[in-house]
Structures are given as C-alpha cells and as structure tokens.
Write a protein that binds this DNA or RNA. Structure first.
Lengths: 339, 339
DNA sequence: CTGTTAGCGCTTTCAA
DNA sequence: TTGAAAGCGCTAACAG
C-alpha cells in the first residue's frame, strides 16, 4: 500500500505537506503541489479512509435503513428507485452508502446501533415511518443526524423529513374519479401503521365528504402488499350489496394485485371498475390497462433526503426541515367515465 | 466517545487487556473478562471501526456493484431480492454492505477504485457480467477479491462466480413448450452483451434442434428490458408470415411488457400464444395469466455469492470456484396445449 | 494471565 | 510556505 510517507519521500517533502496538498491547502505553493500531485499519480497513491476517518471523526458515509423485510414490501420497485435518488447525490458529494441488512426489527435496531456507536456513518436515512419505531427513538435519544422519508409520527417539527403532500394527492386523485361520475368509491390501503396510508386515506375521505358522497367503513380496506392482500380486499369489497365502481389504491404494487384479481373475478377495468393509485413505478405503465396514478417522484424523494442529511451532518445546528416534494397525476387507461 | 482506555481505567486493567476481552482471547481469565464486560456495558462502550480497520487491515465490509443504471434494468425486482440474499449472510457474519452509486460505467469504475484503493471494503460482488468489463478487468489486475453473479466471459476458471445452469434451464423450459405441442417457438431476450441471455438462448436452440424444430434468425429477438422493448419485439414477431404460437422470454419483467403488448394487439395468452420466462420474481405471480417461469432462486444467488466472497477475503488462497444454484420450473397459467 | 510499547495512515497544532 | 511531533482508537508482538 502506497502511503503519504512514500509520496513524501519521493517528492522530498514532509508527510504533512502531502496531507495539505490532498486537502488543497492554499498555503502550499503551486510548485510543490504540482510536484506532489505528480508523485501521487506515479506511485498510485490513494488516501486510506480509515486513517482519515479516525482523525477526522467523520466518515463521509451515510446509512440507509430499509423497512424490515418481514413484510415483502421490499420487493416494491420503490426501493431501487429511491436508492438511485440517494445514490445520485451521495455519489456527487463523494459519500458512500451503507445499507441495512437486518430482516427483523431487532436486527435492524442492532445494526443501526453499530453504525452509530462504531462510527460507521455520519448520518442515517430511514426509508419508512412507523408509529413508535425503536430505531427512530434511538436516533432521537442520541441526537444522531437522521432524516425520514415520509412523515414522522411524533416530534414532527423536530425531525427533518422528506415527504409528499399525501393528503392533497389522495384528495385530488379521488376527485378525478368523482369528476368522471363515480359515486361509489372504495379505498384499499396498506397497513394502518404506515403514515402514507393514513394520509392518502384522509385525502380520499375529504374528497368524498366535500362531494357529499358516503364512504362507509366497509369501503375502506387495509391489506397486505402483495397478491393475497389484493385478493382479500377485492373479495371483501364485492361481497357488499353496494359494490363500488371506482377504487383508490394506495400503492401501484397493490394495484397490480387488485387488477389481476378483479379480472379473474370477471370484472373489467376500466369498463366495470375504475382504478387509481399511487407512486408511478414503471410497472404502472406496463399493466393492462396502464394505471392512472400519482407520480410522487420517488427519485427526488431520495435525492432530497440525501441532500438534507448531508447538510445536517456537516452543520449540526441546521434546523429540522420539512421538505415537500410536489406530485403529478399521470392519466392513463384505468379510469373511465360513469354516467 | 467512550474508548478502550476509559474502560481500562474504570476496570483497573490495561487497554490491551480490554482489547483482548473484545476479541474474546482465551488467555484472559474469566474474572477479568466479566469485570471488563460489565464496565463496557456501564460506560456504553462500542469499538470504533475505523481505528480497528486501520490496524487490522480489514474492514469487514463488502461492496456490491450494480449495473450502470443507464439501462433501467435496475428497476428489476431481481435487485432488491438479491440484496436481501447478500444481506442475510453479511448480517450474520457481522459484515457491512456498501452499495455502488454510480450511474455510468466510468462513475462506477471510479467508485470501485476508491473502494479498493481506499480500503473501504475487503471484497466486491459484481451483480452483472458483461463482455470486457473495465471494472472486472481492474479487479483482476489488482487481484482484489471479488465474485460475479452470473458467468464471466473470460478467465472463467479463475473467477469465483455464482450462477444458474442457464443453458439447461433454457432447454428445459423450451421443452415444456414443445411437449405441449408447440412447434413454432420464438425467443425474446435482453442484450446480447449479457451472458445470461446468451446461455438461455443457447438452451432454447438446443431444445429446438433436438426436437427437429426450426428456429430461424427472425425468431430470435433482442430488445430492451422495459415496455418499449416488449412492444418492438412483439411487433417484429407478428409481422412474420409464420407466426409463433409460443415464446420463450428471458426475463419476467420483459414478459410483463410482452404480455401486455400481446393482449393489446388482440392476442390472448395462453389461448393464442403461450409464454414462458425466467426468474420468478413476485410479479410473475401477479400477472394475468400468472407466468410459467424458471425459479432461479435469486435470494440464494445472493447469499451464496456473499458467502463465497467472505471466504475468499478471509483466505486469500481459496481457489476460484463455480457455484451453480439449482433452479425449478414453476408451472402457472401462461402455457396451454397446442394440438 | 496481563502490561508495555510501538505503530497502523492520516491530520493538525506549533514552530520555524 | 513548510516541517516536526503528537495523537486519533485500536491491535499485536514482546516481556514478564
């Protein structure tokens, strides 16, 4: 391994000078800088991060914590996409990215503790937000820099988070259905533990209310993410006497399951039932029919959260922020007019 | 920050003793071990990785290199799933996981070089295999520990890799179509640069040949992964005078696109056209019809590659290995008999 | 069984 | 503008 000393020797300067050249210290003459840089290149010198981190007390690395993979939510193309967003800024800022690998909640907490205590990372991004999450509590208590993608349950004004206005989005997409003449509109969402679901649902309710439409409890279903969840939800819904003609589904992946179950049960989308959903993962373009859905700009959610986190780690006194990413509605074939 | 010295002082032993307790050195008396451990707990001591890495010349971290996200292949649920597999073993072995974040090939090479030269990681997993890949060449040249998921183009017996027997899989799944009475069978694959595609295609050809069936060049299409690719492929195929009745598609995600284009064009699957494919990502269960596909055990591919890599990093003289993960065929609704 | 010492590669005062 | 020296937190001979 080529060290700073080797470069120093080769150039005839001291190690500290080399170090200063690396840091591009303005008090070093251009001449020596050039000389040193040339030697670095020749010898193939690269700084050792561990040595640097040790003294600098900073790692230029951030940890990304995924939800426990118990729920198969991880399969959601949402995650690769948000990782791309995060990666784009970490890459630009020369940060590295450490991923959580635990499967259960305890394993994840364990890992986060190691990341924090062992100075693996300078800060952490939480890719989920749940009620009373132990990881979040830990981070809060240690006042270790972190940001949440989504909306925190507590301490909302003390925690930097990056989110969409899911309430508005829910309202707007429901209104779209209403404007097309639908009156009986149901809602299918994921776990009530997740804030996204609740916000989108609240938006749905607000729209229904404003339009003077009823939304009985039986119209609001909460299910698992994957196929089985969609199946249950649909069968529950169509056992009702007043069958809905439109459904708001809180995630594209669930929509896929719902879509497929619907057609299996002999309903045609959008002829019999209209469907709208959220996220606009690439899948929503591929389905038959393609989905009308809210584009939440996943990539941007990731990029902004990374940016906010890095700011926080470099300036600890940076105040907590709430960053709202705008959304768009993408109109495709899963909705039809109801007369 | 609580250091080893603090613990030493609190216990009345020397720092080295504390270090030995951490390493669970057998030459330390149980008594002192207990004492020290208690103090560590009380003080909230956690070892600093950077200091440790610096002297140990090992990081207990591995780098995972994704394909350049230029091609949207990254959206493939294949990746989260293989990360889960890798994560399961890195977690068990207390390793951490660093992800590549570059978008272009140069950016990725850059990053890998930093990972290697800067001793960020002990080894690297390449999640793709392409002809004459600069990252692979770099790793080879530096003889830095790495493993490839898939099949390397060159130096095949010198590079540890984890793969399926894609040739057999391709043959077997094609034979399934043939046994159902299909005679005109086409192949749709991804880029010819990727070894997976080529192996699967070769298997398809072998099956056709053995069955005495013809497979003109026009029956073998190579397209992009996502929707547009599927669309092009299908239109090319059905412009032919001899339209196929069965299609072997080299990836589930592509199948989704193909499926949807097929139905848009008025063909019904499996009534008019039968479809088989590869990977068995969760999507293949959700489509209408659900896909008959080769389950390549993605999770296992990940887990085994991590295991092999860690072995390699801990024992540099470990010989190169080829690890073949068995596959299964999952029969679902996308194939029908042809009389 | 335990302590002393040196040193991993780097940054950063303090001096010059 | 540069160098010498100390030290980040830890491990690993070597000694005892």
């Amino acid at each position: 391994m080529v060290t700073i000393k080797d470069v120093a020797k080769a150039t005839g300067v001291s190690p500290s000078t080399v170090s200063r050249v690396i840091a591009d210290n303005p008090r070093i003459s251009l001449d020596t800088k050039k000389k040193v840089r040339k030697a670095m290149k020749n010898l193939g010198y690269h700084p050792n991060v561990n040595a640097r981190n040790l003294v600098a007390k900073s790692t230029k690395a951030i940890g990304v914590i995924m939800p426990s993979s118990a729920d198969k939510a991880l399969q959601n193309p949402f995650f690769p996409e948000i990782l791309r967003g995060i990666g784009s800024v970490t890459h630009d800022m020369q940060y590295s990215l450490t991923l959580s690998t635990g499967e259960t909640d305890e394993e994840i907490l364990d890992e986060v503790q190691r990341m924090v205590y062992g100075s693996y990372v300078d800060g952490v991004i939480l890719l989920y937000s749940r009620l009373n999450d132990s990881v979040m509590n830990f981070l809060m208590e240690k006042s270790f820099p972190f940001v949440i993608v989504g909306k925190p349950y507590d301490y909302i004004s003390e925690i930097t988070h990056v989110d969409n206005d899911n309430f508005s989005a829910g309202k707007e997409i429901t209104n779209h259905l209403i404007k097309q003449g639908h009156k009986k509109i149901a809602f299918i969402g994921g776990s009530r533990d997740l804030f996204v679901t609740m916000d989108r649902e609240a938006g749905y309710e607000a729209a229904m209310k404003e339009a003077g439409l009823s939304y009985p409890e039986s119209y609001k279903i909460h299910a698992e993410f994957l196929k089985s969840g969609g199946r249950d939800a649909v069968s529950q819904l169509f056992a009702l006497s007043e069958q809905p003609t439109g459904i708001v589904v809180s995630d594209d992946l669930m929509s896929l399951g719902v879509l497929s179950t619907l057609e299996e049960s002999g309903f045609s989308v959008p002829k019999d039932i209209s469907l709208v959903s959220f996220n606009n993962v690439y899948l929503s373009e591929i389905t038959r029919p393609a989905l009308t859905t809210v584009d939440v700009r996943i990539y941007e959610l990731g990029a902004q959260s990374a940016k906010a986190l890095i700011e926080k780690t470099t300036n600890k006194s940076e105040p907590a922020k709430r960053i709202i990413i705008p959304y768009d509605i993408v109109y495709r074939g899963s909705v039809s007019k109801k007369s």
